[in-house]
Nucleic acid binder design. Sequence first.
DNA 1: GCCGTTTTCGGCCCGACTGTTTTCAGTCG
Length: 584
Amino acid sequence: MTNGDIARTLERIALILELKGGENPFRVRAYERAAVSVRNMDKDVRSVYEQGGTKALQQLPSIGKDLAEKIEEMLKTGKLAYLKKQEKGIPAGLITILDIEGMGPKRTKELWDEFGIQSIDDLEKLAQSDELRTRKGWGKKSAEAILRGIAQHRKMRGRLPLPQAEPLARELVRSLQDCGHVQRIEIAGSVRRGKETIGDIDILATSDKPEEVMAYFCTLPQVESVTARGRTKSTVFLRAGMDADLRIVEEGAFGAALLYFTGSKDHNIRIRRLGIVKKRTLSEYGLFAGTPKKKGEKIAAKTEEEVYKAIGLPYIEPELREDTGEVQAAQRGKLPTLVQERDVIADMQMHSVFSDGKTSMADMARAAKTRGLRYIAITDHASPMGMVKGIRNTKKSVQTYLEAIEKARKQVPGIRILAGAEVDILKDGILYLNDELLRQFDWIVATVHQYFHEPRKETTARMIVAIRNPYVHMIGHPTARMLGKRQGIAYDMDTVLETARKHSVAMELNTSPDRLDLSAENLRRAKEKGVRICISSDAHAPQGLQYHYGILQARRAWLEQKDFINMQPWHTFNAWRTKRQASS
DNA sequence: GCCGTTTTCGGCCCGACTGTTTTCAGTCG
């Protein structure tokens, strides 16, 4: 069982307890919190358990004696008797109904008890009939809202990758600015936190004419339907297939509101609890003296900095706000100095027309130079796959390639160009190019492009063989995932990262918007193990030299400039590169 | 079920919107 499996099991228990009803809601919440805690961990729960037993598990946040024992059972048997017992009599399809907007546990239970619905299809039939429309507490509008919710659910199928959702959010902001009654406006929510996938878009604004702004928002051409419309909050469903919320707040409380609507929920809860200790109440309207019931004077609200300060914390960057230790780090003055886009001074993976790129090596180098990069590697493909043009496993092909690089160096002075190659890792971990050829390059990126579904054990061994190859400098897009399309290869990440550190091989942060590989979670694990990270665009054309989403991901992983081997001056980078070659 | 400068019991984040109600429960973030 992986961390994800354990988290999913705990979540499922929480859902079932809610559905059954009559349960202490805080107990439900405890299971949810524990699930989040396990999912966000940067270590394997299994290894924590193996090293320290249930006592060590109890050191984890939101895990007490009871849940430590349940996790132990899952790790030992792969099952959980408690879940089995709770599941008894609950139809599997019932839980999926909770994914429908507007259907929570209480309403779902009511319809299950009264009409025996067991699935989304059952719910649809019921909402189409007259039974709901005439039922006490429901009515015509409820039935229609449910049908709308079902239609959206079927259309949405999950979340959009950030590189698709963020431009949508920016476009909405631009449109709203055009309406003339918006003063301040900011993107909040998970887009602001730079999450890898986005469930909905949150926008926050101030306005002298809130009603007009809301009317304008609800009738934008991007909007397919309006879910809710009020004076301060409206929710719409976009044609692009996701919800967008707009909130209008008072100018004087913009900071408190931005903090609140940026989240995450768990971060908010964490800092509110800090407030309670100091007899303060924090809401989207500000930080107040007293309790929610007996609220006193306003202490801070204007800016996020001011609110954090009043609660005794330094400013915490949005990308860190996931309740994965950032509040504790802030209290101890140990927040990282997060990496920024301007720290990118080199790019260690890009392609030219020699393989599947769109432009010449010289054009790529010029574009990189214009962007302010000091050194780059041209890394055309070396792959046995017939469909991939590029470097072949022959002396002659490599010779031709190296000559082309040399020519580009002459054409574009003022930027250092490394002769690199992106070499396929074959099924057994051996590289496509032989050692005699590999040694002629300045920079070797090893990547997986085939055999994505081999067993975990074999894949782990395959990666280790590749890392041990003395000519390899970096593992490119290490899991080979494609966001929203392909899950990526599965292997024992901890073992592979430890091998990489031992052999001083860098792991790539590939900033290509459909890869973003490694993920933030794995990057953070890599950092904690002391593995070198190397950022690269994998650009196939000059406009592909982009780092925005990769940098956001790096920030979510707590990475700093010093964690990147290619954010160092050339001599530092080169010393590491040549030492790697010498020691191998 | 978790947790502790309110420490081993008694709390657990806070408020808006909707559809129904006539003062509110359920849902959402």
